[in-house]
Nucleic acid binder design. Structure first.
Length: 604
RNA sequence: UGAGGUGUAGUUCAAUUGGCAGAACGCCUGACUCUGGAUCAGGAGGUUGAAGGUUCGAGUCCUUCCACCUCAGCCA
């Protein structure tokens, strides 16, 4: 199957991908390449802080940075862990992040860096800044610094320690490093301008004292550099050409530039782009972390999580994530991407790569009265009906008692319902025509318990010799020969289209109570007995599923629904219900269009 | 209300830099079909945030206004 995957352009390695579409950042790089601004080099970096798992928003940045490196001659993308806050960072995250980037299909070769490896150089830079009279040790506490910083409309006031001599600053800073002062008692600040219109330029803190063991440097340091100081210098050390970050750092760019210029160092260009927002989801490490810690989800890799590990466990191919990131484009304006776009990429990829099998999610027992008791036929079914040789065939046992999908039967069928109903004939996929003769119900509840049917022996293979047609084809499994399985259906985690717009406290109130539905009585065809962990299938007519990597085991299969198939019947059904409610026969042609009918999200 | 940024179809992005406003997703219709899938064909959908101005011609240039986003952590 590997060869055919490649033939379809499907791959887990991004190197095989076609170049991403152009955007304003690539335009800039094109221009730089043309003018030789960076001596022909293109060096980007992806700089995560190891304080949580990567999510789909990071994928956008990864695809951008690694994609640029891939698409330009000699391009390189570094992976750098921006680990300057010992309180939040952990090796677990470092490993998870690397795993996720590799899974996404990108490689950093030997270009793996840690800001914590630069602590020594960073310290030397700080010393140099002091020597140049551009930084000072400030004894104000955090509260006092805040109070003297001014506001958006009012300038701040100078720290009383701003005028310290270079010698005194040098001495104090060295003693800060030596651990002579308690946590929080002093900081190193850049000496810029307390009246600057960019608040970040009002003598920003460069170093703080924190007696906190760091996951990589242990207790070697008790002073830690801040982001604004660390990031630009790390970029500079590594010879980055284009430092791509999200727009919330636009206000920090003057500081990025100031630090590098103050030290006369190699100076990459920072360019900002808008972060990804997805409707019905929250992309914020803090929120995702709280979902994990509060036990609202099963962990960082819960298939409902928008984390890369969540998508992986849910069965999303990395190629689909990359395709999505290419399709959403890149710009600076705020945006809220419809998850339908992600689903579209998912289906497009899975359609070409997932073998088809049959599984009945909510079984309804069918007894074929005219099929001989004890008889079993092995019917041949292609894994990939559009191009059978591509994936070959498997045998599917057929017998007197089957299960079909409950939703494929309606006792009083809707006008446009094509499937099974009393007296109706349908085709059983890859098998025979089947006609419903009678319905057996629970005498107490009235629930449909079983269908009594007949089959037409002349229709084996799915064609009638007399040429008669059936409208519907439904999937099925043999009762005795199918396997029981657990199927997990996932839906969006939030019921609001833009959960980010809600106040923090309210967010738990807009959780979708139906985000996980577990079906314990599903039946799947025999051929799935040896399905491997993570393997992806299309359950015909239902959707794409994968074998859960955590809970599935031989003899106890668990499947995750990755994404459903497009379901035009569901639309018809929903429209019918709506029309009825409004007292109109149906939704006419021109009518309802203006209301934005069928839009997958509300406004605001 | 300071500074910075952003406004183009329902959504996300294009528009060869002043020359017929397009694509993808979504939606609708039809064809085909042993998946109501896939595929194919077609369609609807725009006062380019607004108003002025320059120009033969403006999404693009100028002026004014409006809306939204970001910034007042010893987080990143």
């Amino acid at each position: 199957m590997d060869d055919s995957l490649k033939k379809n352009g499907s791959s887990d390695d991004a190197a095989a991908s076609t170049p991403a579409p152009s955007n304003f950042i690539r335009d800039i790089i094109d221009e730089d390449t043309r003018t030789g601004k960076w001596g022909g080099r293109v060096v980007t970096r992806f700089p995560p802080e190891p304080n949580g798992y990567l999510h789909i928003g990071h994928a956008k940045s990864i695809c951008l940075n690694f994609g640029v490196a891939r698409d330009y001659p000699g391009g390189i993308c570094h992976l750098r862990f921006d680990d300057t806050n010992p309180e939040k960072e952990d090796m677990e995250y470092v490993e998870a992040i690397q795993r996720d980037i590799r899974w996404l299909g990108f490689h950093w070769g030997d270009k793996l860096f840690f800001a914590s490896d630069y602590y020594g150089r960073l310290y030397q830079c700080a010393l140099e800044l002091i020597r140049r009279g551009k930084a000072y040790v400030c004894d104000l506490d955090a509260d006092e610094i805040r109070k003297t910083r001014g506001t958006l409309t009012q300038p701040g006031t100078n720290s009383p320690y701003r005028a310290r001599s270079v010698e005194e600053n040098l001495d104090l800073f060295q003693r800060m490093k030596a651990g002579e002062f308690p946590d929080g008692s002093r900081v190193l600040r850049a000496k810029i301008d307390m009246a600057h219109s960019y608040i970040v330029m009002r003598d920003p803190v460069l170093y703080r004292i924190r007696r906190q063991s760091h996951y990589r440097t242990g207790d070697q340091w008790c002073i830690y550099p801040m982001y604004d100081f660390t990031h630009c210098l790390s970029d500079s050390f590594e010879g980055i050409t284009h430092s791509l970050c999200t727009v919330e750092f636009e206000n920090n760019r003057p500081l990025y530039d100031w630090v590098l210029d103050a030290l006369d160092l190699y100076h990459p260009r920072q360019i900002e782009f808008a972060p990804l927002n997805l409707n019905f989801t929250i992309l914020s490490k803090r929120f995702l972390k709280s979902l994990v810690e509060d036990g609202i989800v099963d962990g960082w890799d819960d298939p409902r999580m928008p984390t890369l590990s969540g998508f992986r466990r849910r069965g999303c191919p990395p190629e689909a994530i990359r395709d999505f990131c290419d399709k959403i484009g890149l710009a600076k304006r705020d945006s809220l991407v419809d998850v339908a776009m992600l689903e579209s990429s998912l289906r497009a990829c899975l359609n070409l790569t997932a073998p088809r099998v049959m599984a009945v999610l909510r079984p309804l027992r069918v007894v074929i009265e005219n099929y001989p008791e004890g008889q079993v036929e092995e019917l041949e079914a292609p894994y990939y009906p559009d191009d059978p040789p591509k994936m070959g065939y498997r045998k599917v046992p057929f017998s007197r008692v089957l299960y079909v999908e409950r939703s494929d039967f309606m006792e009083e069928p809707h006008r446009k319902f094509w499937r099974l109903a009393p007296g109706r004939e349908v085709r059983l996929r890859w098998a025979y025509f089947l006609r419903c003769k009678s319905v057996i119900k629970d005498p107490d509840t009235g629930e449909v318990m079983e269908l009594r049917c007949t089959y037409d022996p002349d229709t084996r293979g799915g064609q009638a010799p007399d040429g008669r047609k059936v409208r519907g084809t439904i999937h099925w499994v043999s009762a005795d020969h199918s396997l029981s399985a657990e199927v997990r259906l996932y839906d969006r985690l939030y019921s609001a289209p833009n959960p980010v717009a809600h106040k923090n406290r309210e967010v738990t109130e807009i959780l979708n109570p139906d985000s996980l539905e577990i079906l314990n009585t599903a039946r799947v065809e025999q051929s799935l007995a040896d399905a491997k962990s993570g393997a992806r299938y299309q359950f015909e007519r239902t959707g794409y599923f994968c074998v859960d990597s955590r809970h599935s085991a031989p003899g106890k299969l668990v499947f995750n629904r990755t994404v459903g198939l497009r379901d035009s019947w569901a639309k018809i059904f929903k429209q019918g219900a709506r029309g009825k409610r409004k007292g109109k026969g149906r939704t006419g042609k021109g009518e309802g269009r203006g209301r934005g009918r069928g839009r997958s999200q509300g406004q605001s």
